[in-house]
Design a protein around this nucleic acid. Structure first.
Length: 295
DNA sequence: CGGAGTGTTAGTCG
DNA sequence: CCGACTAACACTCC
């Protein structure tokens, strides 16, 4: 579900409630969620035991992010990694039973715990829930940073890192001849873009998502690079896109969906030229384009 | 009621 | 290696 801006907004929301807070107890109700990142996971009770025994008693030191992963650092140097995939949520609830931060919260599932609360962390102050309707996500234990680095070794650049230069994007895109949208979604090139921000950046850059990657001109890649650098920080600033309901730390909602130009807007008029936006399928993903503005 | 579609990505196969 | 496709799962919407 969440892409980089939503994960980043969630990280910022959770961080102040967790730093210095201690895990007293962990309940894991769905063993596969802590067993591995693979889509062929099995219920591994040794992994559950490890996850619980390693992390109970740990004190949160920091909450970081790499790509769409949340990374919880503990004072001991131990690490917990969370990937929300399509429907994962991390929700913090204080002692007064109030939801303070999380993503996303459907009104019908605002009671906690609910039937999708698969992992529950009882903290010294409040509770932290991992909810996940479709159970594609995962919470993994890592003993230290070097093991985590190994886990991340295939990931591409962070779009907001200075190293994500125009030249880097040009060199990567030149290697592939399949359509450009597929490569924007490829986390081995640039991380953090998903179906929302791939469509939004391609629209802003005026590029048809079906274009062969290696057919893009330098000028087009300049526009695409600029669009990524423009849209991602703005989306973070707005607290991400609340397509479903979504709460930030202060109980307000992410507003970036108000700025979407194409995502979920097929059938409405292009804001630049008035052409009715089309819905097409690219790489088995629904995709919205303006056939006049995107060539 | 059946089938399609859903903010992701690892694994497999040609 | 590259590219196309599928599976992991539950729920919502036509």
């Amino acid at each position: 579900m969440p892409e980089l801006p939503e994960v980043e907004a969630l990280r910022k929301g959770l961080r102040p409630f967790l730093i210095g807070n201690k895990i007293l107890n962990i309940d894991v109700f769905k063993p596969k969620l802590v067993s591995s990142m693979s889509n062929k996971r099995v219920e591994d009770y040794d992994k559950v035991k490890e996850f619980i025994t390693e992390l109970e008693g740990e004190v949160f030191m920091d909450v970081k992010r790499r790509a769409k992963n949340l990374i919880f650092y503990f004072e001991s140097g131990k690490i917990m990694l969370v990937h929300l995939k399509m429907t994962g949520q991390m929700v913090y609830k204080d002692a007064k039973n109030k939801v303070l931060a999380g993503h996303p919260i459907k009104d019908s599932e605002s009671t906690l715990p609910n039937k999708h609360s698969h992992i529950i962390f009882k903290l010294q102050k409040g509770d932290l829930y991992y909810n996940d309707t479709r159970m594609f996500g995962y919470c993994l234990f890592f003993s230290n940073d070097s093991v985590l680095s190994e886990h991340f070794k295939k990931l591409g650049m962070e779009p907001l890192d200075d190293a994500f230069t125009l030249e880097y994007l040009q060199s990567k895109l030149a290697k592939y001849k399949n359509c450009v949208k597929v490569n924007l979604l490829n986390q081995q090139i640039v991380v953090g873009l998903g179906n929302i921000y791939a469509d939004e950046t391609l629209y802003e850059a005026g590029i048809d998502p079906r274009r062969a990657c290696n057919s893009l001109t330098n000028q087009e890649i300049v526009k695409l690079h600029a669009a990524i650098l423009n849209i991602i920080p703005k989306a973070i600033k707005e607290g991400g896109s609340s397509v479903a309901n979504y709460l930030l730390a202060d109980g307000t909602r992410g507003n970036y969906a108000l700025y979407h130009k194409v995502y979920q807007k097929s059938g409405t008029k292009c804001q630049k030229c008035g052409t009715v936006l089309s819905k097409i399928t690219v790489a088995q993903r629904s995709t919205v384009i303006c056939t006049n503005c995107q060539k």
